[in-house]
Amino acid sequence: MYAGLMHNGKVVFLDKLSEYDHETNQTVPLAYQTNAFCFGGSFLANGTFISFLGNAPISAQDPTISDGFRGIRYLTRSADSALDGEAWHEPGTQLDSARRYASRQTMPNGTLFVTSGSLNGLDQNVASNNNPTYAILSPEGITKGTSVVSLLLVKAQPY
Rank of each mutant, 00 (worst) to 15 (best):
P132M: 08
D96L: 02
L75F: 01
G141I: 10
C38Q: 14
L95Q: 06
E86T: 12
K10A: 09
Y101N: 13
P139T: 02
P132D: 04
S42H: 03
L112I: 15
A31M: 11
R100L: 10
P63N: 14
A45M: 09
I65H: 03
L122N: 15
F52V: 12
G54P: 10
F39Q: 01
S66C: 03
T27C: 13
L17G: 15
N131D: 07
A102G: 12
V126P: 03
P29T: 10
G141A: 06
T24H: 04
S59R: 13
L112W: 08
D15M: 08
L112A: 01
W88G: 05
A82F: 00
P108Y: 02
F43A: 04
D80W: 09
P158S: 07
Q105W: 01
A98M: 04
L83P: 00
H89S: 13
L30V: 06
A82K: 12
D67H: 10
T34N: 15
G92S: 07
I65A: 05
S66H: 13
Y20G: 07
F43V: 06
S42R: 00
F49E: 12
N130D: 11
K16T: 14
Q105R: 10
T133L: 03
L17H: 14
Y2N: 11
T27Q: 11
L122C: 01
F39A: 09
L122F: 07
V148P: 03
N120H: 05
R104F: 04
G145T: 11
S66P: 00
Q94T: 14
K10T: 07
D123V: 04
M1N: 15
L5A: 11
N109C: 07
A79W: 00
F43H: 00
R77L: 04
Y134I: 11
T76W: 02
T146G: 02
D96P: 12
G145V: 13
A56P: 04
A127L: 06
P108E: 04
V126H: 01
A127D: 03
L17P: 05
R73V: 08
I72T: 06
V149P: 05
T34H: 15
T64R: 12
I58M: 09
F39N: 06
H22D: 11
G117W: 07
Q61S: 14
Q33G: 15
G54N: 08
T111S: 10
S128F: 08
S42Q: 06
F113G: 04
G41E: 07
R99F: 03
R99L: 02
T76E: 07
M6Q: 03
T106H: 02
F13R: 00
Y134L: 07
L14N: 12
S78Y: 06
V154S: 01
P132H: 06
L152Q: 10
S51Y: 03
T106E: 04
G9F: 13
S116D: 09
F52N: 08
V11E: 09
V12P: 07
I72R: 01
E19H: 14
P63Y: 05
N8Q: 01
A3G: 13
L151M: 10
I58Q: 04
P57I: 05
N55K: 04
S118N: 05
D123Q: 09
N131M: 06
L119T: 10
T34E: 15
I72N: 03
R70M: 12
P132I: 07
D21C: 08
N131C: 03
S138V: 09
V28Y: 09
T133W: 05
S59Y: 14
G92Y: 05
I65L: 07
P57N: 09
